[in-house]
Write a protein that binds this DNA or RNA. Structure first.
Length: 954
RNA sequence: GCCGAAGUGGUGGAAUUGGUAGACACGCUGGACUCAAAAUCCAGUGCUAGCGAUAGUGUGCGGGUUCGAGUCCCGCCUUCGGUACCA
């Protein structure tokens, strides 16, 4: 009987499903364990071979934990709201819900084939009203809370309004955008509209006019982490700054906790670093500079208050609110022109000309807080509106950018830090002695910082301050395919939330998915929907993609509950995610928002843990080889294979109907191969072989070379092309589909091969070069159980050698699974099977435990063999074999004898001998003395289990 | 620029605490079986020299610590990921 995965796998898939083998209960005496995958966005391209990498790893780990006696929650779902489905709808008119469901169905089919142990009864879909009801519900809680800095947690808005009625906002210490203060009496006099506006400055979900990343091509705004290099992450369209009335989430209120509580997590250093970087905490001082002849101050933030005596001018962001106020009459025209110029420039322009310095003098002066000297106020592009206060004191002696600015515009430079004692120090290093700085002269920088802050505070013109790079998260999208906001406005524009009982507020059915006029969501065109509440209009924006994904891991705990996002009992049992597996692309987006929402829910008492994801494993990307041949290639007269670029371009367009994107772009190898094939100039295989073998050739080329030539044995030259690794995507025609692999080799083989490729956290290119080795292993494994057509497993007593092989493998595999090193597990299995094959093992006492050990990796073949061995229950419910240390112990230890670290011989030492005894035994051994050869022994080092080393004088 | 990770045979990669570097697999070479192919099995395979046992050499580069370094320390180089007029 031979191994036939195509017969085994569908059979068990069906049986497992019928028996609900993977259904998990919320009520168990076993300890809980929660293994989570980042749920996918169901795109039209289907699953590619990169997706399952993390899923397979989490599946192996879940199955392992099950066998080890845990009640394992291992669910899967879909991040189903999102832009691509809507773009597709605009182009084709197909409703996003329809295309999304089609895609989900395809994903599900693909996932099922690979044999995952998901409990599908817990599937969630963020676009499902029964799901987004609770996304909206959490949003309403955010809307209804503010962040109290005294208690350091979220509190109800009602508490805040009570405080306002007693003493205005003067005694309120909260995370807020509120600038001005008001008294209790004033508060009571305010209209509803004003009250609404003020409360918006406190709510954790709030609406304000803000400069946002507007993407014209997508017709919507984007969050900061959805913009890369001034272009949209999805689609790569240009993004500009635009002032719009937008919903935001006050994530900044949680900045300190998001930073602090990172420390307790088992995440990689690089990921923690990314989050820290994104939060961007810096400690320094705020300082108020009075404007000459005016009753107004410019507030600045600086990390170097010590250099304040070197501040010779100030620079405001061109968008700063005070610009209009302070610009003198004679400068109005020029300043206006400059502001227009800045506004006309996109982020892309700015990035492209980063080194260019621009700026303009406003005509106004500020008064230096200590010297009382007048210093000019300038505008400059390099000061960002969104960071700090949008204004700086410029210290050209100790800041590179200020220096360039001062040099260009001829402004004063006063040195204030003497770094003579620190020749290695750079401009920004906080070391040196203060000079030209009045009361801090002679102090070291560190002490000077403290002295200045103290003085600022005593004079009440500044204070110690912590600043964060993290900004509030933009939460509005002018789109159809997202969660509607459960918010309505009355005729005065005052916002109120819908009652919880009105949730879910469902999306209306519409037919035209194009954005409505004025940068509005298509929802705005549905009058009936917008005006469904008398006297009110509903908010027509929808929530962004990260809304639904910020809490989905909680819904899995109790996915069908209609009275709560999850029952208290379910949350108390499952608590948090023990292991979370996913890619680094979500390092600062999803993982930051989820932590924020979780902390908020913690403040409100809905979840028992401060952090949602205890341990995080980052799987690397599976990339595709991209083959490029430069157009340069085609210009060469003696090119033996190729005509010219246009030639190829034109022909292939006709032949394949594929679009080749333009002049100057690299041509992909498949095109060239097709072309060459058509021309009968070279066979595909031959060319492929060459391309395959040039990895090392390529290393000797400079990065600018896109091609090279290689000679074959007869001296014939062939061209080779640049090889790169790139992300798989539909647009690049490089998607490798798992289906084909599963069909050819079987799911077990596919699973093991993906794990065998290398460590899961590493990115690597997909190729099937080594998959035969894994297939060979599975056949060999299968043949351990069979003699021709007969099951050969016997109830014989295994011998010592066999037991040793088994237990060595148990130890190695169990340890390696715990540290997510699956590639070495598979090596261990291969070695084990080779050994057992050699020993001709047929004993049940060896093969059955081994089968259980392998079950997490190859669930189908192990289940089949388990049943053939006569079991009636699933191998996936079996007990994990227990490691017996005695089984692997030798009666004798073999110690290499080394002289000065070099191995000379091997000596057998009785088991359990002490280090001292081993030393004595070695010293008296003739064999050892032969190698030491009369040289004086200085030291004998016995490394337990490793070696005996004689250190001698050479 | 700053932060993080990594550089090991022809290839993917092992080496968990400083202790026989190259496990396991791919590929390649030779052989067995076969009319032949596929499949399977056996042997070899870091590099250099040698028929050979063997010797020398070898983990990006240059130093250092140690009886002993892929692993630790100092100084570089390269690649990948993140981030940036961040005050």
């Amino acid at each position: 009987m031979h191994y036939h995965p195509e017969l085994i796998e569908p059979k068990w898939r069906k049986l497992w499903d019928e028996n609900q083998l993977y259904k998990v209960s919320n009520d168990s005496s076993k300890p809980k364990y929660y293994v989570l995958d980042m749920f996918p966005y169901p795109s039209g391209a289907g699953l590619h071979v990169g997706h399952p990498l993390g899923y397979i790893a989490s599946d192996i780990y879940s199955r392992f934990k099950r066998l080890k006696g845990f009640n394992v929650l291992h669910p899967m779902g879909y991040d189903a709201f999102g832009l691509p489905a809507e773009q597709y709808a605009i182009q084709t008119g197909v409703h996003p819900a329809v295309s999304t469901d089609t895609n989900i169905k395809r994903y599900r089919e693909q996932l099922d084939k690979i044999g995952f142990c998901y409990d599908w009864s817990r599937e969630v879909k963020t676009s499902d009203p029964s799901y987004y009801k609770w996304t909206q519900w959490i949003f309403l809680r955010l809307f209804d809370h503010y962040y109290d800095l005294d208690e350091n947690r979220a509190l109800p808005i009602s508490k805040l309004t009570k405080a306002f009625e007693v003493s205005g906002n003067t005694n309120v210490h909260a995370a807020t955008g509120q600038q001005s203060t008001f008294s209790a009496a004033e508060w009571k006099e305010y209209s509803d509209a004003i009250k609404d506006q003020i409360l918006m400055n406190y709510r954790l979900a709030y609406r304000k006019t803000s400069f946002v990343n507007w993407c014209e091509a997508l017709g919507t705004v984007l969050a900061n982490d959805e913009v890369k290099d001034g272009k949209s992450e999805r689609g790569g369209f240009p993004v500009e700054k635009k002032a719009m009335l937008q919903w935001s989430l006050r994530i900044t209120a949680y900045a300190e906790r998001l930073l602090d509580e990172l420390n307790d997590l088992e995440w990689t250093d690089s990921l923690k670093a990314m989050q820290r970087n994104w939060i961007g905490k810096s400690v320094g001082a705020q300082v108020f500079f009075q404007i000459q002849n005016r009753n107004e101050n410019i507030e600045i933030f600086t990390t170097r208050p010590d250099t304040i005596f070197g501040a010779t001018f100030m620079v405001l962001a061109p968008e700063h609110a005070l610009v209009d106020v302070i610009t003198t009459e004679d400068r109005k025209n020029e300043v206006g022109a400059y502001i227009d110029y800045v506004a006309s420039r996109s982020d892309v322009d700015r990035l492209a000309e980063a080194k260019e310095v621009t700026g303009i003098f406003t005509g106004a002066y500020a008064v230096h807080p200590f010297t009382k000297k007048l210093i000019p106020i300038w505008l400059g592009e390099y000061v960002l509106k969104d960071y700090g206060t949008g204004a700086i004191m410029a210290v050209p002696s100790d800041d590179e950018r200020d220096q360039i600015f001062a040099q260009k515009f001829g402004l004063d430079i006063i040195p204030v830090v003497d770094k003579a004692a620190y020749p290695q120090a750079g401009l920004h290093d906080k070391v040196g002695t203060m000079i030209n700085s009045e009361f801090i002269n002679g102090l070291e920088v560190k002490d000077a910082i403290e002295a200045v802050i103290k003085r600022l505070e005593s004079l009440q013109i500044g204070a110690r301050k912590v600043n964060y790079k993290l900004r509030d998260a933009n939460f509005s999208r002018q789109r159809y395919w997202g969660e509607p906001f459960p918010i309505r406005y009355n005729s005065d524009g005052v916002s109120t939330s819908l009652e919880d009982s009105a949730l879910p507020l469902t999306l209306p059915e519409i037919e035209d998915f194009k954005p409505a006029s004025g940068g509005k969501s298509p929802l705005a065109r549905d009058n009936d929907w917008v005006h469904q509440y008398d006297g009110y209009t509903l908010e027509t924006d929808t929530m962004p993609g990260f809304a639904g994904s910020s809490w989905y891991f909680l819904r899995y705990m109790d996915p069908t509950n209609d009275a709560a996002f999850a029952s208290k009992q379910a949350i108390t049992y499952w608590r948090d995610v023990d292991v979370y597996i996913g890619g680094t692309e979500h390092a600062v987006g999803h993982l930051m928002y989820s932590r924020f929402w979780h902390k908020f829910l913690y403040d409100l008492g809905y979840v028992p843990t401060k952090e949602p994801f205890k341990k995080l494993i980052n799987q690397g990307m599976i990339t595709a080889y991209g083959y490029y041949a430069s157009n340069l290639l085609f210009g060469m007269d003696d090119a033996i294979l190729i005509g010219n670029a246009k030639d190829i371009d034109g022909e292939l367009l006709n032949k394949n109907g594929r679009k080749y994107t333009g002049e100057g772009s690299p041509v992909r190898l498949p095109y060239i191969l097709d072309y060459l094939d058509a021309q009968n100039r070279i066979t595909k295989t031959k060319f492929d072989d060459y391309v395959h073998d040039i990895g090392h050739e390529y290393n000797v080329l400079s990065e600018h070379d896109r091609y090279s030539w290689v000679k074959d044995d007869e001296g014939q030259e062939y061209f080779t092309v640049n090889i790169v690794q790139e992300k798989m995507s539909k647009s690049k025609f490089n998607v490798q589909n798992p289906d084909e692999v599963v069909e050819t080799y079987g799911a077990d083989c596919f699973r093991m091969y993906e794990m065998f490729l290398g460590p899961i956290e590493q990115s690597k290119p997909w190729d099937t070069k080594g998959i035969d080795g894994v297939q060979k292993f599975l056949r060999k494994y299968w043949s351990l159980f069979f003699d021709e057509n007969e099951l050969a497993v016997q109830d014989s007593t295994p011998d010592k050698a066999e037991i040793k092989v088994l237990h060595t493998t148990i130890k190695k595999v169990s340890d390696d699974i715990e540290r997510f090193s699956f590639n070495t597990c598979i090596s261990a299995f291969m070695m084990c099977v080779n050994e057992l094959k050699r020993l001709n093992t047929r004993s049940r006492a060896i093969l059955e435990p081994l089968n259980v050990l392998l079950a997490p990796f190859a669930p189908y073949v192990t289940e089949e063999l388990w049943q053939l061995c006569g079991h009636t229950t699933s191998v996936h419910n079996a007990a994990y074999p227990v490691f017996d240390p005695a089984a692997v112990e030798e009666e004798h230890d073999e110690y290499p004898i080394c002289v000065n670290g070099k191995k000379r011989d091997i000596m057998e030492v009785p088991k359990g001998m002490s280090k001292n005894d081993i030393q004595h035994l070695a010293m008296s051994s003739d064999r050892v003395l032969k190698y030491v050869e009369g040289k004086e022994i200085q030291k004998v080092i016995v490394v337990p289990g490793r070696m005996i080393n004689f250190v001698v004088k050479e």
